[in-house]
Each structure stands twice: as structure tokens, then as C-alpha cells.
């Protein structure tokens, strides 16, 4: 059995930052493994630990910088990694969900996994659509926002709980091959062990260009254009009460009463 996990590094913006052109100035960005993907990797590794003969492969669309998070996934137990990148991709301002799914689908057609796990969304762009779009392109079954997964390999069935609004769980059986988008909290992601980090240095990490995936520049065409980025004006205001609790509690109660919150 083969599990393909899509992973990405996400930009985390410092508290104080400046915008340079379309994006936040690189000086104010640090990169880390996307939180949702951390849970997806953990879920895949747990499947590999529970079921014999499972290969876990990660796939990333990203520049060389993203190898840091790929190595992290390998250190946690993934067997090998594929990274998609070339100059044509690097020139794009924006990789939308459609484009990313197109590239990931090309890898998936080569790898032919039984199960694809994707984070619900990436923490920086937050399209929350890549996984589902990927399923559509592959013609696979899919389930989004999965917070519990029971896999029946013999039946080729994934029984999932999907987290809906208002605390409602939907229980669905999904036939494999399938794409599941994984919600945080489905498991407890492990720390990478030092032994794992050491072994990860020797695990295969293949870099593939568009051409190697049998694609051309048309795969990058997108109807979306990134037009501007700006910092919205802050409209709220905070009142800080200082003093002893018995005084400040009274002041807070007064404000709540005036605003019509309390009776």
C-alpha cells in the first residue's frame, strides 16, 4: 500500500512587518511545516506503523528552501519525498489551488497511491481547496476536514469522521483510492527523534520539473491574478482597566451594561 502526503512550508509573518510590492517583505518571514500537514504526516506514519508493507511518500510544490520541512517529514517517518519545482514555477507570483493540484496530480499519476492525505488548508494562503481539487483531477473519491480515520485495507475502505460546523460529526465511508483532507487534532504529531533526523539525511528526495512530469507551461495558467496586498486599518479599540480586581471588575461590569451585553 502506498500513502502520498502533500506537504508544504508556510510563511509565518513577524508581529512587525512591511509590505514590499505584492507580498510581505521576505525579511519578516520565517518558514515552517504547515500545521495541517504535520497532522497528515503523522496520520500516514501511524498507518505505516499499524499496517505492514506501507510506503509513505511526501510531495511538495516548493523551492529548495522547502526541503527543510520535507526533511522534517522524513525524520518523522516518511520513506521518501518528491519536490516539484523549476524556473517556470518560480516565476509565478501566485500558485493557486488549481495550479498546485495540477502539479500534484501529475506526481500522483506516476506514484499511483492508494490514499492521498492533504492538510485541510495551508496556514499562509488558506485556499483550503487543493486537496479536493486534486481528487477531482484524479477522479478519486474524497472527504474533506477529516478528524478521525479508520482504514480497512482488505475492503479498500476508509471510514472517516468529518468535522462539520456546530460540533456535528459526519460519518462517511470512502472507497480507495481516495483523497482525504486532514484536520488538526486528528492525532498528536510526534517530535522528530534524533535517530529519525539522522536517517532522514539519507532518504531519497527527488526534484522534478514540469517537463519531467510530462507537463508544459500551460499547467501554470490561471484565471487568478494577485493584484495587491495591504494591511487593513485597525478599527477596534481596547480599553485596559488598571487597578485592584474588585475595582476593575466593577468598571468592566459597567461597560458591559452600557453596551447592552449584561442585564
Amino acid at each position: 500500500m502506498k500513502v502520498l502526503v502533500t506537504v508544504t512550508d508556510v510563511a509565518v509573518v513577524d508581529d512587525e512587518f512591511e509590505i514590499d510590492g505584492l507580498d510581505v517583505d521576505e525579511r519578516y518571514l520565517t518558514y515552517e511545516l504547515n500545521e495541517w500537514d504535520d497532522y497528515a504526516v503523522e496520520e500516514a506514519v501511524q498507518i505505516a506503523e499499524d499496517v505492514t508493507d506501507v510506503e509513505v511518500v511526501t510531495v511538495t510544490v516548493g523551492p529548495e528552501r522547502s526541503e527543510e520541512v520535507i526533511r522534517k517529514a522524513l525524520a518523522k517517518g516518511a520513506d521518501r519525498a518528491v519536490r516539484v519545482w523549476d524556473d517556470a514555477i518560480a516565476e509565478r507570483d501566485l500558485l493557486d489551488a488549481e495550479t498546485k493540484a495540477e502539479l500534484l496530480a501529475a506526481v500522483a499519476r506516476e506514484e499511483e497511491p492508494d490514499l492521498i492525505l492533504s492538510g485541510v488548508q495551508s496556514g499562509d494562503d488558506s485556499f483550503a481547496a487543493t486537496g479536493v481539487t486534486l481528487a477531482e483531477k484524479l477522479g478519486d473519491e474524497w472527504a474533506a476536514v477529516v478528524n478521525q480515520l479508520d482504514l480497512d485495507q482488505d475492503e479498500g475502505l476508509a471510514s472517516v469522521h468529518r468535522e462539520l460546523e456546530g460540533g456535528v460529526d459526519e460519518l462517511t465511508d470512502v472507497e480507495l483510492p481516495a483523497v482525504l483532507t486532514i484536520q488538526t487534532g486528528i492525532n498528536e504529531p510526534r517530535y522528530a527523534s534524533l535517530r529519525g533526523i539522522r536517517q532522514a539525511q539519507n532518504k531519497p528526495l527527488d526534484v522534478k520539473s514540469l517537463e519531467e512530469l510530462g507537463l508544459d507551461g500551460s499547467a501554470l495558467e490561471s484565471p487568478l491574478r494577485w493584484t495587491a496586498t495591504y494591511e487593513p486599518e485597525s478599527e477596534g479599540e481596547a480599553t485596559v482597566f488598571e487597578g485592584a480586581p474588585d475595582e476593575t471588575a466593577g468598571e468592566l461590569a459597567g461597560v458591559l451594561r452600557d453596551e447592552g451585553v449584561g442585564q
Binding site: 527543510e68 517530535y191 522528530a192 533526523i197 539522522r198
Partner: peptide
């Protein structure tokens, strides 16, 4: 090295 940074970062995280 990248590996040393990875060790440092993971121990820091822990």
C-alpha cells in the same frame, strides 16, 4: 549543517 540545525530546532521545540 542543515542536519545540526534540524536537531537544534527539534530539541528547542521539545
Amino acid at each position: 549543517s542543515d542536519e545540526q540545525k534540524q536537531v537544534r530546532d527539534e530539541v528547542r521545540h521539545f
